[in-house]
């Protein structure tokens, strides 16, 4: 249903062109939920924007295709792509805090989302909006409030309601729980899960929270420095194939093994204007060898349905063992 083929997105910056997404290929079947994980700045939100067709003015799709129901979104003309947005695919944005226009009521903004895609009589729209609001558990009476009168959680629910306004096929949820407190996060995630499980929506769920992905997604793609470094099903977290995934798993509380200490990956994400040669993770990878900084590893199918891009896939068992030891990640790397 949705397929990225060698997608490359670049941003014009003062320092030069940054390759925010670099030759990424992913596929998403009807009714599936794909989780995109990685640190901030790894290109996952850029993918969301590219799919939705809302890249900022300094961003462009430099190469590759985004296939959505047979059309290529990368080359679709702006008007056709506008028609798809909100109707066939909808966004649940990163910061619901600021995603509503502050000077219009919530109702007006939901209304507008419906009207953008063709006429519908006012009573029918009102009914539809009320139903949407009820479905996300918001009081109908609050419809005529302004966004600033809503709490963060309420705004995010209203966002979900707006995304569902025209019953789209694809939902792109870009860090939908950022900035919310933990209890509210859970409620929002439940709503998102129900979109996928009960309403059978295809979903692209973007997050840096491994637990969220593990709980909700059928398939997972791990991104690092604009590249997809590992893809696969839930087994990605159970038996990671890439050292970066190992690091990510260490940085989050384990679902089964609550007592384990959290270990974070030292260092910072790579510079995307002049990315490091070879494997992008090599400068931070505790297992990197000389070869890693020379040639870039390809994303290879390691097991059926599982891909990873690492030169030393052969030593993964050893890596998994050593990754558990905090000292492994402490060693200062020579670059």
């Amino acid at each position: 249903m949705l397929a990225l083929e060698g997608l490359e997105v670049r941003y014009a910056t003062r320092q030069g062109e940054a390759r925010a997404v670099d030759r990424v290929s992913l596929a998403l079947a009807e009714g599936e939920c794909l989780g995109l994980v990685g640190e901030s700045g790894c290109g996952k939100s850029t993918i969301a924007r590219a799919v939705m067709g809302i890249l900022p003015p300094n961003g462009r799709i430099a190469a590759g295709r985004i296939r959505f129901r047979g059309q290529d979104l990368a080359t679709l003309d702006p008007e056709r792509s506008r028609e798809l947005r909100g109707r066939r695919m909808a966004l649940v944005p990163q910061s619901a805090m600021n995603a509503f226009d502050p000077v219009y009521t919530v109702r007006a903004q939901l209304d507008e989302a419906i009207l953008a895609h063709g006429a519908m009589a006012a009573p029918a729209r009102a009914e539809r909006i009320a139903a949407l609001f009820a479905r996300v558990g918001l009081e109908i009476a609050r419809l005529d409030d302004y966004p600033h009168q809503f709490s963060g959680g309420m705004r995010q629910r209203a966002m979900i309601a707006m995304a569902m306004a025209l019953d789209p096929d694809l939902i792109v949820a870009d860090e939908p729980t950022t900035g919310l407190d933990v209890v509210v996060q859970d409620q929002i995630l439940q709503h998102i899960r129900s979109l996928h499980r009960e309403q059978r929506k295809t979903m692209l769920l973007i997050t840096h929270d491994m637990a969220v992905v593990a709980e909700n997604c059928d398939r997972i793609a791990v991104m690092y420095g604009g590249r997809a470094v590992e893809t696969g099903d839930r087994a990605v977290f159970e038996r990671p194939l890439h050292p970066y995934t190992l690091g990510l798993c260490n940085a989050f509380p384990d679902l089964d093994d609550g007592g384990r200490a959290l270990i974070s990956i030292p260092g910072a994400p790579p510079d995307l204007v002049t990315p490091p040669a070879g494997c992008r993770f090599a400068p931070r990878c505790p297992f990197a060898e000389n070869h890693c900084s020379e040639a870039e590893p390809a994303l290879l199918e390691v097991e059926p349905g599982r891909h990873a891009a690492c030169h030393r896939l052969d030593r993964i068992e050893e890596f998994r063992r050593r990754a558990r030891d905090p000292d492994t990640w402490q060693t200062e790397r020579k670059s």
């Binding site: 809302i54 028609e83 947005r85 966004l91 944005p93 995603a99 226009d101 502050p102 895609h117 707006m162």
Partner: peptide
């Protein structure tokens, strides 16, 4: 620079409507 403009695009509004939103806010 505000986030809500992206959301307006994401819900499929045309450029004209988006400019209206932006201007309405900028007029304050």
């Amino acid at each position: 620079g505000s986030d809500f403009l992206d959301m307006l695009r994401a819900k499929g509004l045309g450029e004209g409507r988006i400019v209206v939103h932006a201007t309405r806010n900028a007029l304050l």
